[in-house]
């Protein structure tokens, strides 16, 4: 167990280093810079700007400089937001994205699990067909179609919600519903498959034979095994939810890190791009690691290797 954790942590270091290096050189490789768009800048001002941000130094110097800063936990000053550091921007925007992601995950599990269990228990009945069709619908209608349609109906037509913004609790409903629905669909399909496999196994039949009620069999005996495919899907799902929020935050004008990242790429805000890429990579690696541990915990047949 401890060896497994230590090995995975050690493995993370070169991975993050490679990501940082590759991203750093890819965005610098391209001509033009963050100050190209500003027309009013005189050559003198430009030189001063470049000096402030160390852009006048050779590339490898900038790289080692940046690497040193990152190791000290400092992601540098933003190029586009004067007087703000990347750390401040992330501290400001990340909680919003995390809240959106967490709510979406709750939506995904809250809709997907019951739907999948129902479909498996009532296999080949109309309930199964309805659940499976709804799941397929959720997979095939992308978030950027579903989101605007929900806005059109619930916000504009019925007037229940605001079309965009992130102020009150009501503003959380549509964005997290949109983002969560796709994953609810996948989770429903996986839960159905997992439950079907488990329900036909001997220990479930034994529990039934011993007179356990239908509900108890599902809740106490089958669910733990039936959820295994769902747990292994949680890693990709979390990554998808985090990056999926780029689009959701754009549709609903949510002031989160996803929208900030896309803007920073357009604006060539070098430090902000690098900072968010490293943060996303570290976050997703960490969450995947947590999912791996949870998997072993749920299924003693698997071992830490």
């Amino acid at each position: 167990m401890i060896r497994f954790i230590v090995r995975r942590l050690l493995e993370t270091i070169p991975v993050l280093l490679i990501i940082l290096t590759a991203t750093f050189f890819m965005i610098r490789f391209v001509p033009g810079g963050p100050f190209t768009a500003e027309k009013a800048v005189t050559p003198e001002v430009l030189r001063n700007l470049e000096k402030t941000y160390h852009l006048d130094q050779p590339l490898w110097r900038q790289y080692t400089h940046y690497l040193g800063d990152v190791l000290r936990g400092d992601l540098g000053p933003s190029f586009k937001y004067p007087n703000r550091t990347v750390n401040e921007i992330i501290a400001d925007k990340l909680p919003v994205s995390l809240e959106l992601g967490l709510l979406s995950l709750i939506v995904a599990l809250g809709i997907g699990l019951p739907l999948g269990v129902f479909a498996a228990v009532k296999r080949n009945s109309w309930i199964d067909y309805v659940c499976s069709s709804v799941a397929m619908l959720g997979i095939c209608v992308p978030t950027f179609v579903l989101g605007p349609l929900l806005v059109l109906f619930f916000a504009i037509h019925l007037g229940w919600f605001n079309a965009s913004g992130w102020y009150g609790p009501l503003d959380r409903v549509l964005p997290s519903l949109t983002l969560g629905c796709v994953y609810a669909a996948y989770i429903a399909r996986l839960t159905r498959g997992g439950m079907l496999e488990v329900l036909s196994q001997d220990y479930v039949r034994t529990a039934r034979a011993k007179g356990a009620s239908g509900f108890r069999v599902i809740w106490r005996h089958a669910l733990r095994g039936g959820l295994l495919p769902v747990v292994s899907f949680l890693g990709p799902a979390i990554a998808g939810i985090l990056t999926g929020s780029f689009v959701i935050e754009t549709i609903f004008q949510v002031p989160g890190l996803g929208r900030e990242f896309v803007n920073s790429a357009f604006n060539r805000d070098y430090t902000l791009v690098l900072g968010t890429v490293i943060l996303y990579a570290a976050l997703i690696i960490a969450l995947n690691f947590a999912v791996d541990v949870a998997q072993v915990w749920l299924n003693p047949k698997l071992k830490f290797e």
Binding site: V15, M26, V30, A239, A265, A281, N288
Partner: peptide, 18 residues
Amino acid sequence: YALPFTVFVILMMVFLKE
């Protein structure tokens, strides 16, 4: 598998455009 692909695709689309 454990990396955010979409992030890299976005970076490629922006920075390799020119």
